[in-house]
Nucleic acid binder design. Structure first.
Lengths: 301, 301
DNA sequence: ATCTGTTTTATACCGACAGTACAATTTGCG
DNA sequence: CGCAAATTGTACTGTCGGTATAAAACAGAT
């Protein structure tokens, strides 16, 4: 991504933190980041698009550093989970993510709304999957309820603890407290055999969650994250290649098959990567283009 | 309150439910309720003021009917509490209160924000007080945390249960489920002796909660609500008198002492009212005016 | 250094919006 | 009826998000 464009995002973020999203006018952003209106609308098609770009950047880095905490660790270790939650809560606080979130959650822009919902859903799914690893398969029926309630407890506790103790207070005790509570809560629900939401229904929650394209994107995201997690900062080329693939699929209307093919070719020759995972990626992409081609034929009939 | 004014509030509410607050322009409200712009700004000083008036009306009626459920009942009966919560959740849903709430919670209008925060705080305090009655004094240290977590669990469960099962689904099982969970949660926290927020600090939470004026307003509200609860619809005069006092104190910069005095005089002669409570009200008002007079002298020095 | 295509800038503009100002009209009430 | 208050209609201000476009700055290839 353009250097200048990222600069604008950073400057806007600063203004959003200081005054909020609604209260920051485009004019403010232009003056603060020293660009003209024309350039702004060359980068972003609207103010909301800028916000989405900002969220993507923040969430992306948050999710990777959160996932990095798991590398080489026992996935069933509760203390690691606590560290992951603390990390996310602190990033939220630092970037005033929650405030921004709330401010625009109910908005007239359907795209923005959908994007934010998707983010919430991803968070619930992540907690659910971690709970599976932490509490085991036999608790599965109760873990979706658990994930939902955990986030409810956590957010409320953080919110009012911050009000009572000042927003600069250490959030760690709140996270510990909330995790302790959810452990008991899960046992309680399992003992009582009470269930509100069935985990199997999770995929049908959000309207387009069951669309093949969304499933593809999620798989793609997961595989690429796995590959990236196995790399360190010295292997910039490989990381860039993976990022390129992800970007090409997520942000272009029409992904350029020949480009992606050649990138995959490079990856297959990269000895530092786990070739089993690369093969998975290869297959996934192949299936995708087959499906696109079929859909294309179908519509030409 | 003016008939016409209430009509405007009702029409606006309808539009807010259909399209949301931000998406409803003042022009829309004017056309829909058939008044002119001049009249609108004669009634409300701004669009936000209208929203506050709407919230006040909705909250007011919700709180009274919620409190009515307790009359002549065992205050320690959990099933009554469940009924009260169900009532509030259903009112929320019917009036799209939560959506409206979220939409304007982070707003530029400091007054509106303060008003909404006050409402949330009142809700937490109400749950805390009910928990005291339900679970007893010995659990007190854990009941503020409990109230906060209960609302977090409840709102999250309702939200995602509605997403999964359609917004017209019966909310009752969610309330039962959430109440069951919080009971265990409270026992768990008490057993572990873990505490996040001290109930004594509750009054200092919101900036002006400790201001004498706010304490006064709360006491006033409570006494008047008690008196009103003992009346039925046939005693309109008494209700109007009580409403007048409340309105005079809450909405006027300078309450007219002579008017309030004469209203109190009428109330003292009203045999249908509990004269012990009326005496309390009398004393409260007397203290208030003494304090105002003192403050006035102080500033004239 | 010159040509060429792209990016950036400056500026004027549009429509929608919240809120103001005010003179003209209607309404309600003694 | 007469008068004061409420109501109306309309025109206005300033701000906002977003569009349009011509001129200027820039960058890479020859």
């Amino acid at each position: 991504m353009n250097d200048r464009k990222q600069h604008v995002i950073r400057m806007a973020h600063q203004l959003f933190i200081e005054r909020g999203f609604q209260a920051t006018s485009i004019q403010d952003i232009l003056e603060y980041s020293g660009i003209s209106k024309g350039t702004f609308y060359n980068y972003f098609s609207s103010k909301n698009e800028l916000l989405i770009a900002l969220f993507k950047a923040l969430y992306g880095s948050m999710e990777t550093s959160r996932d990095e905490l798991l590398i080489g660790q026992d996935r069933a270790d509760l203390t690691i989970f606590i560290k992951q939650i603390e990390l996310q809560m602190n990033t939220n606080k630092k970037n005033k993510l929650i405030t921004l979130f709330e401010e625009v959650f109910v908005s007239n822009d359907e795209d923005l709304k959908q994007f934010l919902k998707e983010g919430q859903k991803r968070m619930i799914q992540w907690v659910f999957n971690r709970f599976l690893e932490l509490f085991g398969e036999d608790k599965r029926p109760y873990l979706l309820d658990g994930a939902i309630m955990f986030l409810g407890i956590l957010h409320h506790n953080v919110k009012y603890y911050s009000i009572a103790n000042g927003s600069s207070v250490d959030i760690s005790p709140v996270v510990h407290y909330s995790v302790h509570r959810i452990v008991t809560l899960l046992n309680d629900a399992a003992n009582a055999g009470e269930q509100l939401n069935k985990p199997e229904q999770m995929s049908t929650w959000l309207p387009d969650a069951s669309k093949p394209n969304e499933v593809f994107k999620e798989k793609l995201y997961h595989i690429i994250a796995t590959l990236k997690n196995s790399l360190d900062e010295n292997q910039m080329k490989s990381i860039e290649l993976l990022d390129f693939i992800q970007d090409e699929f997520l942000h272009s209307k029409k992904s350029r098959e020949f480009l992606i093919e050649s990138v995959l070719c490079s990856l297959r020759n990269d000895q530092t990567l786990d070739q089993k995972t690369v093969a998975k990626l290869d297959q996934l992409v192949k299936d995708y283009f087959v499906r696109v081609a079929e859909a294309c034929e179908q519509s030409n009939k």
